[in-house]
Design a protein around this nucleic acid. Structure first.
Lengths: 254, 254
DNA sequence: TCACATTTGTCCGTATGTATC
DNA sequence: AGATACATACGGACAAATGTG
């Protein structure tokens, strides 16, 4: 699995990089080249240390880098060890969350960017959407309906809806940015919910159910407009929908 | 996801947190709360290990996490050690770069997304730009001019121009996405340059100088249009400019 | 249920490289 | 140039977790 003799032409600088960085980069390279794929198991730490001719601590620090890059996941115990995984979108979202906490991003900035961004995505989706995308979106709606039928909030489904929309644009960059936005928004909404729960009684819950149903209606309308290729109508619904979300977050913009 | 008796509650794992993760989270918390600020020096590894009552390796792995999160930087030598630093935007761009490799984002997807995104940014910049932003942009132009006067390419300045533009929008989310796009683009351009250098003689260099000068003219035009609040003209120049970039990358779209 | 092997998590001691004074 | 302080790295050891027989 790990080539001992490297016929690579690229001469890596010797001193500037630390050992664990080189090991991390080497494994990344194998993943990017498709030699290692998600699901593949890497050798254990001791075995990696033996093959790379380094100590176990060095391997561990390399694994920390790969773990936080969303490229490998580590499981303990027998039959455990490092496994190639593609969690890179989740890690980007996590870093975005950090950036938000460092006051680099305000709620206002995020909602403005989201609105503009979703309008762009919608413009492309009208042309690029396929039958399979419509099925996914419809399934998402059904799941949300079922939850709301049982008086449960469908927040995860509402978030997923917008990511599915980005996927329908067939542009992976759009998907990455949308996933980041929605991850941030989810974190924000959770904070808002916590504030509400601690301050209000459970009358607020029925209020939230009503809003969740309202969101569902917007989502259904947007799908309908997309299917009928009515871009203006879709954009208008989207703007109304996002305006409501914005108003809901407004009190928390300090 | 799967019909389960339990509602969608994200169960945070209790014991699965490793010691170095808790240490990393604790230091992050101090940074987010403003108790630790960029520039502040953290105790040395041994001292941190003593205070947290853990081994040095545990501290080291915690520092790896914080380093890759763009929250601390580590300096070697005497008077070195971990320092609070805000490099979070750079690390997000770096992860986006990984995502580009993993998700196989095509050049076509990236350029399309970039064009749409820059138009949105431009729309806001017209209203939000301040005197200091214009000064920064003008300084960027001057630097590029000076380099081109010495028959040097001004690629870094050209890239910085667009990031400065995003900063002028006063929306940090725009800055993050723009920085990510430009980081990707820089990597692509370097690949293209390598291909050219290995295939062609240095006649290609004068060709690139000419293109670089051309880019500069576009950038100057865009600034001028922004100052005079002529949005349509600015957008038109931007579209022409990006179309040229796109044509240049066209041969490398597989 | 009970060992047992495997692998990660953690700690310690030691040595080396490196930057600053 | 030497001393100092720190990160970097190695190897050994044991504990904890996890799957298997």
């Amino acid at each position: 699995m790990f080539p001992d003799s490297s016929p690579t032409i690229s001469f890596t600088p010797l001193k500037s990089k630390r050992a664990f960085e080189e090991i991390s980069a080497e494994i990344k390279r194998l993943v990017f080249q498709g030699i290692l794929k998600p699901g593949d198991k890497l050798p254990s730490e001791t075995e990696l240390a033996r093959q790379f001719r380094v100590g176990r601590q060095t391997v561990r620090e390399a694994l920390r880098l790969l773990e936080l890059s969303g490229i490998v996941a580590i499981q303990k115990g027998s039959n455990g060890g490092p496994v190639i995984k593609d969690r890179i979108l989740a890690t980007i979202s996590s870093l975005m969350h950090d950036a938000f906490h460092m006051k680099k991003i305000s709620i206002e900035e995020l909602t403005v960017a989201r609105c503009e961004f979703e309008k762009v995505v919608l413009k492309y989706v009208i042309d690029t959407i396929e039958e399979s995308d419509i099925k996914s979106l419809q399934y998402n709606i059904d799941k949300a309906k079922q939850k709301l039928g049982n008086n449960m909030l469908a927040i995860e489904e509402h978030i997923e809806f917008h990511i599915l929309l980005a996927k329908a644009s067939k542009n992976h960059f759009f998907v990455i940015v949308m996933a980041s936005i929605m991850a941030l928004l989810r974190a924000l909404l959770c904070q808002v919910e916590e504030n509400l729960e601690s301050a209000n009684d459970n009358i607020g819950y029925t209020e939230r159910i009503i809003r969740s149903r309202n969101t569902l209606i917007y989502h259904e309308g947007i799908i309908h407009a997309i299917i009928e290729k009515k871009q203006d109508e879709a954009v208008q619904l989207l703007e109304q929908h996002l305006q409501e979300v914005r108003n809901r977050l407004q009190p928390f913009i300090k």
